[in-house]
Amino acid sequence: MDLTSSQKKPEFWISARSRRPEPGVFDCARTAFAWLVTGPHPVALDGRRIRGLPPRPVPLDEVGTTLIAKGCPQETRDAVWTALVTRSRAEGGTWTVACVGLALPVLIPVAAKLTNRFRGEVHDIHAAVLTGFLEALTDVDLTRPAILVRLRWAAYRSGHRALRDALDAAAPVADLGARALGPQDTGGHPDFVLLAAVEAGVLTAAEASLIGDTRFSELPLADAAHARGQTYKATQQARHRAERKLADYLTALREGGATPARRGRTARRMQLQNRPGAEKTRRPVSPSTSNPGVGDRGTRLPARPRPSRSELEPGAVQETSSCD
């Protein structure tokens, strides 16, 4: 059913939706949220309890417009999401739909980013993104800052796992040319690079999250330090160490060098080859040999014994070799 002019879609969806129409679960979430803010009594938050909102009941679509404004303080965003998640956990239903609807401006770009080069069925990956978000609603730490950033990261990880599963699945013969490139071939997007570094054992999940949240999201380093229970300087040094490891990893990949995992396998092979008592399969060339080239090959081999007449078959004619 189309919404009338009095039931128009919330403004904070326009920029996210105009880039790419999203099928499936996000259409359902968008429609469900629109009904929450339709009519004379829309679902609202009590702005008097949240610093940064007007001191009145604030409809959820107006809350969403406030949250995506560039001037909105992080404290206001976290206070709103604390109120939303708390009510979702206590009451479910309406407030869980409210959380999903207000998160669409970050969930839709996550899903689009994961599937923009995937030519298979995207519905399962979009559903995994939403599932990761919903699961994180139940246990995200509301005492730490940047709540939505951490919810988005959980949704991204869930969608990324679904994408990898889809890429690793056996494809029908007729569809062999239609599979997408893996996440490692998606143009080096920061989120993909960080996830690849975690899977390679270069970074821990906490280190990747620290880089992603403070470099590519809007979480200030001071807030990250507070969330980690560290001083600003200690968190800054931790990020610097993580970025150095990431830079070394990317340099090795760019130069065609061995990854840490491959270097580990090479080192283990060398340990096995060099262990005491290991049988040598190659004879080292003597350093005194002045010309170990192919011209000397065969000059020191013993001459092959010439068979006698008795060893020849009856009637066989022995040819005289001119080389001897």
Rank of each mutant, 00 (worst) to 15 (best):
F26L: 03
D248M: 12
R51H: 07
E11Q: 10
R144L: 01
Y156E: 08
P220H: 00
Y232E: 06
R150G: 06
A174F: 11
L148K: 07
T320K: 10
R152F: 04
S6N: 11
E91L: 12
A258H: 06
P287L: 02
L142Y: 08
L272H: 13
Q236C: 09
L163F: 00
E121F: 08
R304T: 15
D141Q: 05
L104Q: 01
R30I: 13
A90P: 11
P105Y: 03
R304V: 15
G101S: 11
P145R: 03
R179W: 00
P220I: 01
A111F: 03
K233N: 14
R144Y: 00
G257I: 00
E22P: 05
G182K: 06
A162L: 01
A16T: 07
R89M: 05
S217L: 10
D141A: 08
E11K: 14
R30N: 14
R144M: 00
Y156M: 06
E22M: 15
L203S: 13
V122E: 07
G229R: 02
E255P: 01
L301G: 09
E62N: 09
L312P: 08
V80T: 03
T281N: 08
P276D: 04
P287N: 03
T231E: 01
S158M: 04
T299P: 05
K8I: 09
D141S: 09
D124F: 04
F133L: 01
W35I: 14
Q271F: 03
G182V: 02
G71S: 02
V285N: 10
A242Q: 02
R254G: 08
G92K: 05
N116H: 12
T86S: 15
T143C: 10
Q184S: 15
R179G: 07
R87Q: 10
A238K: 04
T138I: 13
L219V: 14
R144Q: 02
T38N: 12
G229F: 05
T281V: 09
H226S: 11
E218V: 08
T76G: 08
A83S: 12
R157L: 04
A16P: 02
H226I: 04
P21T: 07
G92D: 09
